[in-house]
Design a protein around this nucleic acid. Structure first.
Lengths: 204, 204
DNA sequence: ACTGTTTGCCAACGCTCGTTGACCAACGTA
DNA sequence: TACGTTGGTCAACGAGCGTTGGCAAACAGT
């Protein structure tokens, strides 16, 4: 499986990436990616079929193959994820928890790619490795700026990830009714101090 | 899909459930269930094929159909889950958090069914409904005994579920390296106070 | 207008899956 | 010994999947 955590060059047979002026097929490409993201988020990797994605995008399944090489390639292109964590080093330390929870909620509310990534990450070994890559390349560097003790960074980042991904799991994937019903500000009020403690409090 | 959260009568074509003396096929049945649990936990619902499960159990795929009716029926029988939460009402309130986290870790370390359930719950709508059933039938009643205010029970149970399922997700499914490396007692020390606060602290 | 490239559809391939029904062997009872 | 029941195998089915290659239309450069 190609590495999706870095935007590696796609295996598209289109000869040269001419960034000067748009190709006519860019719209189709985007439509495929949109449908793919939706299907992967809703159904997971296996149940999201190329045929169904192509039907949603109103094109032939073979076009998906031509543009993205394989189902794996399509998935890699569809969930090239950048969670754009803010630089937590520039704000007061006692606000880190609440800001991070609020940012996390914003990202998940407006980006079905994250749901797709979590669904697939939980569903297969390859998906799990993708999430490990996101954690390593995007979460850990930010955590390093908040808790300078390098020996504790990994632990504190993992605790934070457990709390935040658990929220995403129960609210956006499993959809446990009380987790869905929780208002945004209440989540921030409850989870903010938890994350704050995981990142900055002394080892218990 | 049959309801798996309650041990409903299986769709097995064996005529009468004679509980008096064991049948000769009980060993085979158990072998199938063992292989099924392992495969479902390792591969998720779609990738765990009946053929592979039968191969593990060293019998013919058609036996699985005869005993469990369908793949759905096999899954329902394999993950008939009882998380056996302790009665938290009988111990000092300030210990509830740590006891619950420790119990949760014990359950997950020794029971691959839970990993299978979480993997499948994250992978499909039907799986998510199964986890909603476990939450509603097994978690909520226990939470009611700890936080008597009925208006807050659901919220507090959901927050606790988010924290604990997030731990299970990062540690047993995604296997984020620092989450896997965390010693048991350190998890209890970090998450115990969090769960304690979610269940018993006043609304923030 | 001619020609090569891009964009797209169509029909099929090979494969694996869940599932079925016919058939066989071992056993328990009369 | 004969026979119904139970435990198990074998071979095949129909369907759906990812994937491929060929061909038609639209376009662009000359």
């Amino acid at each position: 499986m190609p590495d999706s955590t870095s935007p590696s060059s796609p295996p598209t047979p289109v000869p040269a990436p001419s960034p000067s002026h748009a190709r006519r097929s860019d719209a189709t490409r985007a439509a495929i990616l949109d449908s793919a993201r939706e299907r992967f988020a809703a159904d997971g990797y296996e149940r999201a079929t190329i045929r169904a994605i192509a039907r949603d995008a109103k094109i032939d399944p073979s076009m998906v193959m031509r543009y993205f090489g394989s189902k794996e390639g399509l998935f890699a292109a569809a969930v090239a994820v950048d969670i754009r964590l803010p630089d937590l080093g520039t704000l007061p330390r006692q606000e880190v928890g609440r800001v991070l929870v609020a940012h996390f909620l914003d990202q998940w509310e407006g980006n079905e790619v994250l749901t797709a990534l979590l669904r697939v990450g939980a569903g297969s070994q390859a998906g799990a490795e993708r999430m490990q890559g996101v954690f390593r390349d995007q979460v850990m560097p930010v955590a390093r700026r908040v808790c300078p003790d390098p020996e504790q960074t990994a632990t504190r980042a993992a605790l934070t990830a457990a709390q935040l991904l658990g929220l995403a799991l129960t609210r956006y994937v499993l959809r446990l009714p009380p987790a869905v019903a929780l208002p945004r500000e209440e989540i921030v009020a409850w989870l903010g101090p938890t994350v704050q403690r995981y990142l900055t409090a002394p080892h218990p």
